[in-house]
Write a protein that binds this DNA or RNA. Structure first.
Lengths: 180, 180
DNA sequence: TTTGTTGCAAATTATTTGCAGCGGG
DNA sequence: CCCGCTGCAAATAATTTGCAACAAA
């Protein structure tokens, strides 16, 4: 409950946060990619230099075999519970982090103080989230990306990464009407 | 240690997060504004509908009478300790939040999972942070702001807010040379 | 076999809340 | 004098870590 820095440092989190950066493409279109054989999962994990254990395979499948793209650690853990995979929350966190470091997943902080994981398909994007229903859209605007680069240069910074989330009310009637 | 949502909801944090939004100005130039008389602080607090108590006055002065612009709750608490103000951490958090809601301060999440507070001077801006030394620059790029609006419209969203931070290596020789 | 991996419980970090007592207006 | 405010301790929430038992390669 207090111990170290004084404003400075620990922004390091963001360095290892997102999987490999890559050039902007304008509209992700979410390919289904459902129910691939386990042997592929094993290879994917092996190629990351990790042992292909049951927890890792199951967690990878959660991402690849679901229409849901964005998962918090808790979400994943709960899905595993439902599926009767006997995997602890700590392991879930550990594996998610390893997958991020291996570039299989990417991690973002859409809402303050909670990490969201998604399959890293190589195309960088930012998020647009509905503050009423939580719906998340992905976008990548080359103009914004270019401008960020410019801003960094103006300040003499070598740009390494960025975090951008837009918050708004989506077009669903319920959200538009939206009390609260 | 787990209880509620499933990805959805709680993005609400961001609704009350930042003080009032305002039109973009291109370069903040940080006026000093040092050592104003206490009576002014009292008024500023009163105008927010809050009682002018010692903790509130002292916390407001931390922001107004220091060259440092960005403070975490811990930072403020530690400064108060140094100054022998007898103010608890809980009170610090409570007052900071009240000041944000009153529009005196604004709150941002520059690094994952840690709130940063600064005086709300009415001019909206985003942050550019050095991942080596923690230095924070402020900027506002009208082009980026406009583009965000466009993106939201494309998706049929009514844009309410955004969070943008750029991470890079600043121009200081130490950071440029910079091994981690 | 050997080193990486797991589950569980306990520790951390950032922040919030309950409550009895204090003090501005 | 009354209700808002404070300190302290305990509670939450998200995530991490220590450690002994295991299990891929």
């Amino acid at each position: 409950m207090m111990a170290n820095s004084l404003t400075v440092n620990a922004y390091d989190s963001h360095l290892q946060a997102t999987g490999r950066p890559s050039p902007g493409i304008t509209e992700p279109d979410l390919p289904p990619m459902t129910d691939r054989p386990t042997s592929d999962h094993i290879n994917e994990i092996h190629h990351s230099g990790l042992k292909a254990t049951a927890p890792r395979i199951k967690i990878l499948r959660v991402f690849q075999e679901s229409s849901q793209r964005h998962w918090s650690a808790e979400d994943v853990y709960r899905k595993l519970l439902e599926d009767h995979a006997e995997i602890g929350l700590a392991t879930t966190y550990r594996v998610l982090l390893q997958f991020v470091q291996a570039g299989l997943l990417s991690r973002t902080y859409i809402e303050a103080g909670k990490a969201i994981f998604e399959l890293n398909e190589g195309r960088h994007h930012d998020h647009l989230v509905c503050v009423r229903c939580g719906r998340v859209e992905e976008f990548c605007d080359p103009e914004i990306e270019a401008r960020q680069q410019r801003v960094a240069e103006q300040f003499g910074f070598e740009l390494k990464d960025h975090a951008l989330s837009l918050y708004g009310v989506c077009s669903s009637p319920a959200c538009r009407r939206g009390g609260r």
